[in-house]
């Protein structure tokens, strides 16, 4: 959130000065009047300027909604969504009959839609917000699956003493694997290759 406090002879003066400094239109900000100007006694003593606070409004949520509504309509899928404000991101949860189409193979469609939604909603925003798309708890389920996979493979690597390469994954998925095995006795993990074919290697500790 970007905000400034400015002063001026009148409230109006202060506002237009502030808008100029921010380089935005009046409709882009929320205005809070902190102090009314005072002329003072005989216009001499105790003169006080007007003071206002201008806060740039974020349009990220509005734009994300408009974008998703348009995409859902254009694709002709039966999908609804809810937007949840989280501390450091917006979580958009998709649900409905056709949600599978928007998830795609291993979540690749969901990742693509998440990426484009971030670009579209944060376009020209001074304070961008990270948007995470989920679909009926898909990401949580996938995380659990990945952790199980990681532990199973790590167990095997420890027994056989040979490194094992997992299939290519996105950075987010690779992070889940690394984190899951951080404290797993007898193995360590690293990544190899270039995106989109970068994969996690689980190797035995010597």
């Amino acid at each position: 959130m970007r905000e400034i406090e400015v002063t001026g002879k009148t409230v109006e003066d202060a506002i237009s000065f502030g808008l100029e400094q921010l380089g935005v239109e009046r409709s882009d900000v929320e205005i809070e009047i902190l102090e009314q100007p005072s002329k003072g006694i005989l216009g001499l003593f105790g003169q006080k300027p007007a003071k206002v606070r201008l806060t740039i409004k974020s349009r990220v949520i509005e734009k994300a909604k408009k974008f998703l509504d348009d995409v859902i309509a254009a694709m002709g899928v039966k999908v609804s969504y809810e937007i949840l404000q989280r501390e450091d991101h917006l979580l958009i949860n998709l649900y409905g009959n056709d949600v599978g189409i928007l998830i795609g193979y291993r979540g690749e469609t969901l990742d693509a839609l998440q990426y484009i939604t971030n670009l579209a909603a944060n376009k020209n925003e001074i304070t961008p917000r990270r948007i995470i798309l989920d679909a009926q708890g898909y990401r949580e389920r996938r995380e659990k699956t990945l952790i199980r996979l990681a532990e199973r493979v790590a167990e095997k690597v420890r027994q056989k003493g040979r490194p094992f390469a997992l299939e290519p994954m996105t950075p987010q998925e690779r992070r889940i694997i690394h984190t899951a095995l951080q404290n797993f006795e007898g193995v360590y993990t690293y990544s190899e290759g270039e995106d989109p074919n970068r994969k996690v290697i689980i190797a035995p500790k010597r």
């Binding site: 995409v71 002709g76 469609t109 990742d111 693509a112 990426y115």
Partner: peptide, 12 residues
Amino acid sequence: IAKALRTLVKAA
């Protein structure tokens, strides 16, 4: 971006 667009079109 082009790759993401193609993925979405393919899904549709």
